[in-house]
Simulated assay, not measured.
Amino acid sequence: MKKTFFWAFLLCIGLSFAQDDSAIDETMTFESIQKVYDSIAASFTYEKGTVVLDGDMATITVPKGYKFLNAEQSKKVLTDLWGNPPSEPLGMLFPEDISPVSDNFTYAVEITYSEEGYIDDEDAKDIDYDELLEEMKKDTELANPERVKLGYGTMDMVGWASAPYYDEVEKKLHWAKELKFENTDVNTLNYNIRVLGRKGYLNLNVIGDMTVLPMVKNNVDKIIASAAFTEGNKYSDFNPDVDKVAAYGIGGLIAGKVLAKAGFFALLLKFWKFIAIGAVALFTALKGRIFGKK
């Protein structure tokens, strides 16, 4: 049974770091499992201070209490370790005492960039967020048959976990959704931060479940403040003569209309990263089930 449970763990969490399959057998002890676990946690190199992103396009000034994982290592975490589809992250932020395989994993912040064009924010003052929420709930419900057809469970939008707020001066937007996935006991937190720039926007997405919402809210201001575009790439550097304007405004950015245009499958991928929570939880549970009596 030890071997069965351990293979389940490998398949679910995607431990491609463990190359020697012959070393995995029924004689494995808690210590040997823990050794693999610790070696993965120790394989990452984190940064502090101000980090330059993607060819000097933007910077992250790592907030106090956090550490930064670069793009290459973040890709390994998201794809190889957590089992998400291939992506191009710019990096990730982790609380100081958390690693990608921590027993006490709480949340992480994935950082990406979308070059969709300059986001005209003229609509920001006129958005009725209650009306927008109802529209988003309907869109999510309409997408469920396609998700089921593709082999995934249904997803429902419960409501705002944190209502949208747009800082017109800093050109930063943030909001959070509470999502209910089929056959899950704990609802998912989808906390979105957008930093608008000349040609697109930075995405800082919190990966976690609803239990970490108070913790995220206590730290969200410094996470938001950490990201900035460099000179020449700022929102104020927009040149209408040469720069592209996005086909949507603030409301479309919140509603995720850009994803909907790419089809239902693109909408699915946005939430696949939350497999990470289940994978880490599974590892913790497996250790208890396999070695609980040790």
Results as ranks from 00 to 15, higher is better:
Lys273Val: 15
Leu132Ile: 05
Lys172Glu: 12
Gly91Asn: 02
Asn219Phe: 01
Thr154Glu: 15
Lys180Met: 06
Leu78Ile: 11
Leu189Val: 08
Gly65Ala: 11
Ser43Lys: 05
Glu141Asp: 08
Gln73Asn: 06
Pro145Met: 09
Ser102Tyr: 05
Glu231Arg: 11
Val220Glu: 12
Tyr166Phe: 15
Val36Ser: 02
Phe94Thr: 01
Val258Arg: 09
Asp103Pro: 01
Ala279Lys: 07
Asp123Val: 04
Leu11Gly: 15
Tyr165Leu: 10
Glu96Ala: 11
Lys294Trp: 09
Leu267Pro: 00
Ile193Tyr: 04
Lys177Pro: 00
Met136Arg: 05
Leu268Trp: 14
Pro214Glu: 03
Met92Glu: 11
Ile33Lys: 01
Lys257Ile: 09
Thr184Trp: 02
Gly14Leu: 11
Leu81Ala: 12
Gly288Met: 08
Lys76His: 07
Asp121Arg: 03
Pro86Ile: 07
Ile60Glu: 00
Tyr201Ala: 05
Ser32Glu: 15
Pro214His: 04
Val258Ser: 13
Ala143His: 05
Thr184His: 06
Ile223Tyr: 08
Glu135Ser: 07
Ala228Met: 06
Lys172Asn: 11
Thr211Phe: 05
Glu231Ser: 14
Asn192Tyr: 04
Trp160Leu: 10
Leu132Thr: 06
Ala18Phe: 12
Asp209Ile: 03
Met57Glu: 07
Ile193Cys: 11
Leu142Tyr: 06
Pro145Tyr: 09
Gln73Leu: 03
Thr106Val: 02
Ile33Val: 15
Glu231Trp: 06
Leu53Tyr: 00
Asp21Gln: 11
Leu53Ala: 00
Val245Thr: 15
Phe94Trp: 03
Glu72Val: 12
Phe229Ser: 03
Gly232Ala: 09
Lys244Val: 15
Ala18Trp: 14
Pro145Ser: 10
Leu81Trp: 09
Tyr129Met: 08
